[in-house]
Amino acid sequence: MAIEVRIPTILRPYTGGERAVESSGSTVGEVVEQLEADHTGIKERLLEDSADGWAVRRFVNVYVNDEDIRFTGGLDTAVSDGDTIVILPAVAGGADLAAQGPAPLP
């Protein structure tokens, strides 16, 4: 089964500069495994190993046919021939005052 996977700029070094690649699988998780087999190292940029097993990293968004997979079952989301997976890094940041710790004592 051919699934089109759209690759963001930051991950194109893994795909030889390709903006989109074909992959296969019946779930997003399987597609990621196939991607890893074809483009070694990409999996770690997409997923993290947590207590509950592999999951998409907090600041990576994965969409199947325009639906964010966070709302459709995560890596278990089913895909089939002709589907398009879009990977987009989150655009996020901020001053994050908490991370700077408390102000020094007077």
């Binding site: 968004n61 969409y63 964010d68 989150a90 655009v91 996020a92 901020g94 001053a95």
Partner: peptide, 16 residues
């Protein structure tokens, strides 16, 4: 989407 004085994040649907 974070509506915060110390963090910002584009909504995932808006981003797509």
């Amino acid at each position: 989407a974070a509506m915060s004085p110390t963090f910002y994040e584009f909504d995932s649907g808006d981003l797509l």
